[in-house]
Design a protein around this nucleic acid. Sequence first.
DNA 1: GTCTATATTATGATAGAC
DNA 2: GTCTATCATAATATAGAC
Lengths: 219, 219
Amino acid sequence: MNAGVDGGGATPVGSRRAARRTQTIEEILGLALEIMGEAGAGSLSYAELARRLGVRPPSLYKYFSSVMAIYDELFRRGQRAHRDAVAAAMHEAKPGMDSIRAGFDAAARWTADQPVLAQLLFWRPIPGFEPSPEAFAPSVEMVGLFRTALSQAVDTGELVPAGGSEEALSLLSVLAAGISSQYMANEPGRRWKESRYLPLGRAALDMFQAAYGASTSEP
Amino acid sequence: MNAGVDGGGATPVGSRRAARRTQTIEEILGLALEIMGEAGAGSLSYAELARRLGVRPPSLYKYFSSVMAIYDELFRRGQRAHRDAVAAAMHEAKPGMDSIRAGFDAAARWTADQPVLAQLLFWRPIPGFEPSPEAFAPSVEMVGLFRTALSQAVDTGELVPAGGSEEALSLLSVLAAGISSQYMANEPGRRWKESRYLPLGRAALDMFQAAYGASTSEP
DNA sequence: GTCTATATTATGATAGAC
DNA sequence: GTCTATCATAATATAGAC
């Protein structure tokens, strides 16, 4: 599951050297994000990475077999973190529209908090990089969460039956992508709490509910 | 207005040498798009450009003062072309919602037809590149077109007064960005006529009208 | 695991001959 | 306007000593 050269999952019990290795890997990934944040997602290099880690470039090959392997690991972790953030928010809220709103908010907030990872996940800024198929699994799971929540919102009477359709689900994705995309393009660096896209995300869901909501009077 | 080294606007009357120069510039920009399409928007280089043009890299400096100047010119032209496509579609249609739908459609279609330029305009895939401020003017103009059309839709009674608000305008932008963004990320290369985002764009505007439309019964 | 040394390849940019 | 020659810099990656 892990990318590149690093040897497998959890630290073997009692192995200090493996712990140290894990620590170095974490440090490398952190520095990678730092570099990408400063000079653009596509500007990661072993040379700069080694410079900041205080080693020579060849040493990095002991941890990752190529620059692409680092991108892949960041992508994999990013997808998981994004899904976890959304899932946690949805789980805390009441099933149905509350859960959808919470998840929608959390997705946008995560994007704002992790602009570099968001760029890597949702745009495709690196020419040669194609994430491994398994790395997409969390994204699929997350769509499933929203599908379930929409279905629940229909069951509770918050939405008309059409709200449980795949089209409604797709429109929800479009709204989420639109909010994130506009934020990243127009207000990168702006704090999410002060961004105009925070209230606009709410307004977007109001629009969604105006279209699919069962509150007033639909046939 | 023109980027880089190329000397000013239209071809002076009767100057063959200027015409040839213009032709070369066009060829360079075309090849630049070709390269960016094949290897990613951020992978443009004088070396590859010269290779394809059949000259040596230093010769290119007679036409553009740097690689960034090429990006800037492409950005400038892209913004204009995008605005023109949208404006033409809106102008042909009946003022109000028809015009908005036509413009919305045209924007998405243009994005699908010009994926490389769209990436350059709407995402920021090139680390060091910051487009010149004047290059944004067409984008501002285009938002103005939609603002006017929304206002007309309110006047004709197609939309409730809130449909003329800046919030409604922003939501329209969010929808447009969402459609384009999802298309580019999930179905790059797919023909627009066969893309699932073509009908989804229509559905998005249906949702917009369900929220702001005055057809049924709003206070 | 880290280093030096090296191979290979690429880049942007400039000087100056023609 | 195009070229050769050149400078300066950077990149990924491997071999092999320690």
